[in-house]
Design a protein around this nucleic acid. Sequence first.
DNA 1: CTCAAATTTGAGGAGAGCCTCAACTTATGC
DNA 2: GCATAAGTTGAGGCTCTCCTCAAATTTGAG
Lengths: 199, 199
Amino acid sequence: MRKDALHNRERLLRAARRLFADRGLDVPLEEIARTAGVSIGTLYNRFPTRETLVAAVFEDRVATVAELAEQALAADDAWEGFVAFLTGVCELQAADLGYNEIVARGATTGTDTGYAVMLRIVAQAQERGALRDDVTLEDLAFVLWGIAATVRATFRIAPGAWRRHLALTLDGLRAGSAHPLPAPPLSPDQARAAMNDCP
Amino acid sequence: MRKDALHNRERLLRAARRLFADRGLDVPLEEIARTAGVSIGTLYNRFPTRETLVAAVFEDRVATVAELAEQALAADDAWEGFVAFLTGVCELQAADLGYNEIVARGATTGTDTGYAVMLRIVAQAQERGALRDDVTLEDLAFVLWGIAATVRATFRIAPGAWRRHLALTLDGLRAGSAHPLPAPPLSPDQARAAMNDCP
DNA sequence: CTCAAATTTGAGGAGAGCCTCAACTTATGC
DNA sequence: GCATAAGTTGAGGCTCTCCTCAAATTTGAG
């Protein structure tokens, strides 16, 4: 790749990172190009679709979440680890509206490795008697999804307000507070499908 | 109002009711007019803005929710009443994607009477020791908001799946399972603002 | 320095929706 | 019936965003 091309790529990523974080994933591509000081044509040269650009911008988050997961699994107290993981994911969302929308569109459960790690977190927390036995990873995904809505809503007005919502939800997830659940859990495929073509 | 005008108004409302329920509030107005067998100009004659149309279509829901609230307040078991109210609101959403989006845009907390009634439900459930003392109506609005996301996602694929999410959440709201909350609650105005200009 | 390959550029076509308004049609009181 | 106010119509202008492509420019190997 030629050096000017690489340079423009960097400028585009910087601009996109900033705009996605502040205004979400639906910023007009033309605006990203303008902010980067580059023409719309160049943007399309480097990133043929919006999706490729989004993927490039949020590439690093995959590693960050994996790291959070490792820490959760290594924690002495299973419940603390579990809470720290969920809190960490929410903090990522609270720091970046774009990442929030990625979660809100179900991309989290999309990656296979991410899925596997989260399964282990749930399993460990349940084995150690911290997390109620009847929840599945899919339940958790929806619960987290709901909190994502609160994170997004309070993004500007009251950063940190989502911590209350998370705390309330966690109190319902503790092993001690379990009451019978009224319906069978969703299969992984069903959950993925539901989140991906959410109206 | 002339009789043909009234007739067209009815046809428009019928079409809008159906399309909003199936596809949400963002259906193109031209499509509503076409479905109603009427021109776009007529739609604009009857309903100058999308908002007036939406308001007319969902007018009846206000009464329905008030009724649910009355039943909740009259219940013998305070917790049962509280649960029935939340369940009822979710069922309304599950039956109508348009109403789901209205809730998801925070219009529920908008009406003053609705607000007052919900305050009474919360207060009563807390006085009778069923609902944990540290939650506010605003907390509840966000929680319900989160569940609305699940209702919307599972709308087609797994109707009823949201009942699990609601049940988990309720287990966190019971008086018995309360652990300290990490942040101060939002004021009513803050909550309203957060929901109304949610990015 | 030269030139071909790589890259950039931005005007413009395409599609979706919103909304208006001047010309036409219909209901209704007299 | 008739006049007229009320109502309907839909083509067309407007805005926004996406995306393409032929012409102009830049890079870097030889």
